[in-house]
Simulated scan of single mutants.
Amino acid sequence: MTAFLRDVALAALVTLPGVAAVASPGAQPQATQAGPGPLEQVATRPGPDVALPRVVSHVAPAWPPGTTGAVRLRVNLVIDAEGRVAEARVTTPTSLLPRDPSEVAAVLAAVRQWRFEPPSTAPLLLSTYVGTSDDDGVVVPSGRSRPPLRVGGVVGPPTKIRHVPPTYPAEALSAGISGVVILEITVDPDGAVVDARPVRSMPGLDAAAIDSVKQWRYAPTWLNGEPVSIVLTVTVNFQP
């Protein structure tokens, strides 16, 4: 089985119903493949016994000129043992695909560049939505009805992809107030910080810490192949 998976991984097909498959960079284009690729057919989904890989590199689609309206595609990703996207396949019904095939190509080209931490089990199958209605090109409506999951166990800490340092309040600075504010934050399936509350407060610094953290951005956290909301603690340091 190991040799088989290694051989099929070399193909690294990106497939889409009704659209010619695009091979991994440097490879020759492959024939159209309407169904799951060879890796997807044997891939495992994340679960209680399979730890979730964190996203370490995320690329938004480069939408072609003239893209208008909402583009929203569901994509299956197969992650190999090194955390690379070995296969990517749009699973949106053909009747709902954009009329412009270059928009589909933009999505596939973007997700092929995503990188994850090496998974504990490979190949690993994940599913997500990619579209135009999010700043980073990822739409992840699933998981919104679930309560946020606390980081720990199989839910690893998320990867921060945007950091905004705090603004030191002038009053606190002139008063010589410094220290660390510890916040509990909630990150939604898109990776945005939607709530923050102090668990260790510093008078005069809490509001600035919250303002800073709410501008941070994280890569989505996955559970059972879908992004979910999470809760974690973070620290914000104020030193003159």
Rank of each mutant, 00 (worst) to 15 (best):
P166S: 07
V56R: 11
L149Y: 14
Q239C: 01
P93Q: 03
D134S: 14
W63F: 01
L77V: 04
V138Q: 13
A219N: 06
I230F: 05
P123G: 04
H58T: 02
V19H: 13
T128Y: 07
A81D: 15
A207L: 11
A196Y: 06
A172K: 07
P61G: 02
T128H: 10
T91S: 10
T68H: 07
V71S: 02
G26W: 00
A88W: 04
D211Q: 13
A110S: 11
T68V: 12
V155M: 12
L77C: 01
R150F: 09
V180G: 07
W114C: 01
L205F: 10
W63N: 01
P198N: 08
S57A: 15
V139E: 15
L126E: 07
G137L: 10
D190C: 02
L149A: 14
D135H: 12
W63K: 01
G37I: 06
E40H: 08
D7N: 13
M202G: 11
D80I: 03
D135E: 14
R144W: 13
D190E: 15
V50D: 09
S120E: 10
Q30Y: 05
S201K: 07
D195H: 13
P46N: 04
A209K: 08
V8Y: 09
D136C: 07
A109I: 00
T94H: 07
M1R: 13
A110P: 01
G143E: 05
Y168Q: 09
V228A: 04
L223G: 00
V104K: 00
F116K: 05
S95H: 10
F116G: 09
N237D: 14
V130S: 05
N237M: 09
L39W: 10
V56H: 02
L205W: 06
R6M: 11
V213K: 06
M202T: 14
A27H: 11
A11Y: 08
R162C: 02
Q33E: 12
A62P: 00
V85N: 02
G143T: 07
P36C: 04
G143F: 10
S102I: 00
R89P: 06
V85Y: 02
P141E: 06
P64T: 01
Q113S: 10
T92Q: 04
D136T: 13
A196P: 06
T167F: 03
S24I: 02
V71P: 04
P118D: 02
M202R: 15
